[in-house]
Design a protein around this nucleic acid. Structure first.
Length: 205
DNA sequence: TGCCAGGCCCTCTTTAGGGCCTT
């Protein structure tokens, strides 16, 4: 059994949307939660080996000049593999971050064993009244802490960690007699929206 | 030259289309 409050929450900034089209990571940020507390953080720029376009420079604030002397993917991913060792993983729209983690680890012949959970899929189930499920909107909607920085890896990972802890609180209120595990979260994240309340009732019996 | 992400999820669906979310 894996408790959902013992995870690494991560976020990539990248040159684009698809590693299959040659896009690479340019920054990784992560927050380690133990017993629901932030106990460690990770942030590194990554030299992608090519120039990033002006949209990405503007979107992230990460310039080609900043990346010129950044460490290689090999160096950063080796450190990150140690950081996540033994932990499950959470990201906002995890399918995106998982495909980049898989691609960068494959480039460097690295492996990880943690399972992924997704705060976006969970939000669509348990915060159905939110105006939308973008990270920035949810931070505002739930009035979560933030420092006004968006689209930088550690800032986004930190905001996602506050969102995640808030989501665990919401679930704990619905399931007061249960430990909130990653299995429960992934179960809820895969249910049709209309079945969430029935699931709560079934679990309460 | 022409291609250009992909998984999730809803619906005017399932012999499909399109919006959402991530950079």
């Amino acid at each position: 059994m894996t408790l959902a409050n013992q995870v690494v929450i991560l976020d990539f900034e990248t040159t684009g949307l698809s590693p299959d089209n040659g896009d690479r990571a340019i920054e990784i940020g992560a927050v380690k939660l133990v017993d629901g507390q932030i106990v460690d953080t990770f942030q590194e720029l990554i030299n992608p080996g090519k120039r990033v376009n002006s949209f990405i420079e503007q979107y992230t604030g990460i310039s080609n000049n900043m990346l010129k002397h950044a460490p290689s993917s090999k160096e950063v991913m080796a450190q990150f593999a140690k950081f996540i060792d033994g932990f499950n993983l959470v990201a906002h729209n995890a399918s995106f971050d998982k495909k980049f983690l898989d691609a960068e680890f494959k480039h460097n012949k690295l492996h990880y064993t943690g399972q992924f959970a997704c705060s976006l899929l969970l939000s669509r189930r348990i915060s159905q009244d939110a105006p939308n499920h973008q990270l920035g909107t949810l931070v505002s909607y739930h009035q979560l802490p933030n420092d006004g920085v968006f689209h930088r890896a550690l800032a986004d990972a930190t905001m996602t960690s506050h969102l995640w802890l808030h989501q665990l609180d919401l679930l704990q209120q619905q399931l007061p007699n249960h430990l909130i595990t990653l299995d429960i979260i992934n179960k809820i994240s895969s249910l049709p929206k209309a079945q969430i309340n029935r699931y709560y009732q079934t679990m309460a019996r």
